[in-house]
Amino acid sequence: MRTPSPSWLLRGAGFAAVAFCALPAAANCGRPIVTPLAPVGIGVIIEGNQVSGIYPALLKQVSARTGCVFKTSVVPQARLESMFELGTADVMVPAVGTPRRDQFGDFVPMASARAMLLSVDADRPAVRDLTELLQRHELRVVAVRGNDYGEAYQAALAELSRQGRLYLEPDPLQVARLLGEGMADVTILTPMSLAQAMIENQRVRPLLDRLRIEELPELPWSHSGIYLSRKTLNAEQRRYLTAQLRKGYDDAKVWEQYRRYYPANVVAASMRLR
């Protein structure tokens, strides 16, 4: 499978900042908006010096319409989380809405997503919930450092760490490699995040056909979208950016991109639009 390439899905190189002609509306942003990006499915795709995906395309669209400048850089997920909490990033995108993140910014929901238990072992007995996962001491768990799917997820990771069977990796590709090499048994991720890593890397691509998806009832559907920092953006800036981001996000086109790019079972398990 290849990334679809209609004009709506941006594929740009050296994406240090999205900037277009300075329109009068740019005054509503006031200054360049610091927007670090971490790879997450086709929401944000990083390939060498190229950045593409649904959210970079959305930022480009907002820039073209308003003159606002989004100063972007590529960072690991854990660093993105830290930058947002410390107030060195104006935007966290994309992100799942959580109570912890709500302390630092206003959330702009775009879709719904959920994390699930993922593996490449079809013969393993099923895991019915997080409680059972914590009791299954033979299962080694790998997770992406900096991911947050809510309080139940964080509590489970803390207990798995205490038990000495949690591995933390910087991105979904490393997670896929550990699963493929038999160094870990399961992970907790959105299926599209792991599928994206498998699609883009020749070494782990064969694992996609073996991907096993299991629901964890403690991890329900959560809103996914964009956080705007209350530390660095004033109320007027946040209101303006919220309106512009929502105006540019086309549900039908987003859904089409997901369905064209991922296997049907991965899309069905991973997301719902607004």
Rank of each mutant, 00 (worst) to 15 (best):
Y240N: 01
A264S: 08
L117S: 08
F107Y: 10
D185A: 04
Q163F: 01
L228E: 01
L80T: 14
L133E: 00
W255S: 02
M116W: 06
R124A: 15
P94K: 07
L86C: 10
F107M: 09
R177T: 09
L194K: 02
V34N: 09
Y149C: 14
E47Q: 15
L173G: 12
S222D: 10
P263W: 00
D251C: 02
D129T: 12
V144E: 11
S222P: 12
G248Y: 08
G97N: 12
Q202G: 04
V74D: 13
A64W: 04
L173H: 11
R128I: 15
N201R: 00
L130Q: 03
L118G: 10
L139A: 13
I45W: 12
R177M: 12
P94C: 08
R145H: 14
L208F: 06
D251L: 08
V266F: 00
N265A: 01
A25F: 14
I199A: 03
I54N: 04
L241W: 07
Q163L: 06
R31G: 13
E236Y: 13
A38N: 09
L189Y: 11
N201H: 12
A243W: 07
R260M: 05
V18C: 13
V91T: 02
P170R: 10
I188E: 04
G30Y: 10
V144C: 07
R145T: 15
L189N: 06
Q163I: 02
T66Y: 15
E215I: 15
R272N: 03
Q244V: 02
